[in-house]
Amino acid sequence: MEIQIEALQIAESFNIKKFRSEFRSEVFSGSTSEVFYALTENNRYLYVFDYGVVVFANYDALAKSEFIQFVKNYATTLVNLDLCEEYQIVIDEKLPKVLVKNDYVTVPQIDSSLLRIVMLNIGQSVALEYYEVLTDDIITSSKHYILELENRGKLSISKTNLLKYIGKVLNVKNSIVDNLYILDDPNLVWDNEELNLLNRNLKANFDINPRFKDLDYRLQIVENNLTLFTDVLNVRESNRLEWIIIILILIEIVIALFFH
């Protein structure tokens, strides 16, 4: 027996509280930031995270499409990127223990808690991919201004546009930092050694921790670039003020000479 799992980055965030109140299914487990459903009547499982990720298990194409259209009503900003990840759970009763592979995990038996751990890690992996894309875009866009500083020794961008760019970068950076709690281990693994081992193996399989460290490093680069651009803007504004003061002094001297 196999269970097909697919995780999708649909939006930047979901209003989980409102979604839970209006989605007419009993919650298996959840919090203010996530909600997990075990729809046993049709052997489907669903995991929705407030950072814009939905994970499906045993959903056909039509059911996924219908739910995506529904959950978009609770999204803040839709993500127009094809970010998804597929995985499988293979049930083999002959196996003595869980075996994690690159694109599937084999288990001797399945329950909702085990399925939740698998779906959680796939959701984390897709979310990290989204943040990696955002950070890459920011670093790439900043290279243009850095090259301009290297070649011309100044920035041709206006103050307003530069402030808009800084604001955009800070907004993305804050969004990433606010949602890095996704890497926290769920409470249910603390008292269950088997689930804890499965969780650790899945994190290793999806390179969750190395990718987080790389993302953190890129965020440091972004922060350094912001500091540089802010310093350049301050210097430019200081120079402008100095010239204004000089011009005013010259005007005052000219006026004084004219009247004398």
Rank of each mutant, 00 (worst) to 15 (best):
L248A: 14
V222I: 15
I244F: 13
I221D: 10
Y181G: 06
N187Y: 10
G167S: 10
R211H: 02
L226S: 03
V177A: 08
V189P: 02
D178P: 04
L198S: 01
K213Y: 15
W190Y: 14
D185S: 14
N199C: 15
N205A: 11
I221T: 09
I166Q: 08
K164R: 15
V235S: 06
K168Q: 04
D214W: 06
I247W: 13
S175A: 07
E237H: 02
N234C: 03
N187G: 10
N196H: 04
V189Q: 01
L198R: 03
V235I: 12
E223M: 10
K213C: 04
D184C: 00
L162K: 02
Q220I: 08
L198I: 02
I176D: 07
D207C: 03
L163G: 00
L198E: 02
P210H: 12
N239R: 13
N209R: 07
G167W: 11
L233F: 10
R240Q: 14
L195F: 01
R240E: 13
I208Q: 08
I246Q: 03
N234H: 09
N205H: 03
I176N: 07
R218S: 10
Q220Y: 08
D178W: 07
D191S: 10
K203I: 06
N224C: 01
N192K: 02
E223T: 14
L183T: 01
V169K: 07
L180C: 02
I245Y: 12
N174K: 13
N225V: 11
L228R: 06
T227V: 04
R236V: 07
L183F: 00
R218M: 11
V189K: 05
K168V: 00
I221L: 15
V232S: 05
N239I: 12
F206P: 03
D216Y: 14
L215Y: 08
Y165S: 06
N196W: 00
L163H: 02
V232L: 12
K213F: 14
F212E: 09
N209F: 12
N161L: 14
N239E: 15
V189N: 01
N199V: 06
K203S: 09
N187T: 11
I245G: 01
L163I: 04
G167D: 08
D207P: 00
F212Q: 10
R200T: 00
D216F: 13
N224F: 08
K164Y: 15
R236W: 09
I221R: 11
L248E: 10
V172E: 09
S238V: 08
D216R: 11
L215C: 05
D231C: 01
S238M: 14
L163P: 01
L162V: 01
V169E: 06
I208Y: 08
W190N: 03
R236Q: 15
F212M: 11
N201H: 13
K173H: 09
L248D: 08
D184G: 02
L183N: 00
L248T: 12
L162W: 03
I208H: 09
N171E: 14
V177I: 05
F229Y: 09
R236F: 11
E237R: 04
R200L: 05
N239S: 11
F206K: 02
N239W: 09
D178L: 12
V232W: 08
Y181F: 15
Y181D: 03
I221G: 01
P186Y: 06
W190M: 05
E194Y: 05
L226Q: 10
F229C: 08
E193Q: 15
E242C: 04
W190I: 01
A204I: 14
T230P: 00
V172K: 09
